[in-house]
Simulated scan of single mutants.
Amino acid sequence: MIVEIYSDLICPWCYIGKHRLERALSDRPRLPLERRWQPYELNPEMAPGGIDRVAYLATKFGGIERARQVYGVIEETAARDGIPLKLDGIRRTPNTLSAHRLVRLASRSGLADRMTNLLFDAYFVQSLDIGEQDVLLAKAAEAGLDPDMARDYLAGTADIAAIRATESVARQLGIQAVPCFIFNRRYALAGAQEPTAFMPLLDLAAEEVDAFTQRVTPPL
């Protein structure tokens, strides 16, 4: 079974949604599942160096007080799920293109899950700027990637076109917000839903996999 997870690494609901998917999967421990992290930049036109966090929130929410109200709800939700968000510590909203590229690079070594976890944690728990190359290189090494390879990769332009193409396809599919979870490229679940919301789709996708396996496996 394949689940494609469209998300942005600075989206708190994506971080919460990731945890909730993992909780759902803990109730299906024998379910074979491959997670594919797909890029979806919330701010594709963001300046390469990012923007001051206060200025960003004021523009996005129409004022800092409104931003505090919205983020208060997010923090309360995360706290109920046992997720230690530290939104007040974030100083800049970064451009996430390089972070998405790093996840893509990590996927070639089977390290996409670990890389994604490290980047979410870096931003939401450690209050690090995941648009900065030094931060990305440190997390790449922590994930197990070769530091020199990661440095050369980030210094170039590899996979930028592929990421833009993936985001374009996502919008053509009607994905307008993240997180969005697509199971076996047939069933979609949008938003940071409760773990129980994943169960019907997990079971349905598993039934399809079983049925396909039975069709293609010759009798003994």
Rank of each mutant, 00 (worst) to 15 (best):
I2M: 10
L9K: 09
L9T: 06
W13E: 05
I16P: 01
H19N: 15
L21W: 09
R23P: 13
L25W: 08
L25M: 09
P32H: 07
E34D: 08
Q38F: 08
Y40S: 09
A47E: 05
P48W: 02
D52V: 06
A55Y: 06
Q69F: 15
G72P: 00
G72S: 11
E75Y: 04
T77E: 05
T77W: 07
L85W: 07
L85P: 04
D88V: 05
G89L: 03
T93C: 11
P94R: 01
L102P: 03
V103N: 01
S109N: 15
D113H: 02
L118E: 07
L128H: 10
E132D: 11
E132I: 00
L136V: 06
L136D: 00
K139L: 14
K139C: 05
A140P: 05
L145A: 06
R151C: 10
D152E: 07
T157I: 03
A158V: 12
A158F: 12
A158E: 15
A162R: 03
A162M: 02
A165T: 08
S168I: 15
R171F: 01
R171S: 08
Q176G: 12
C180A: 03
F181R: 01
F181M: 01
I182Q: 09
A188E: 06
P195Q: 14
F198H: 00
F198L: 02
L204I: 00
A206W: 08
F212E: 13
T213V: 07
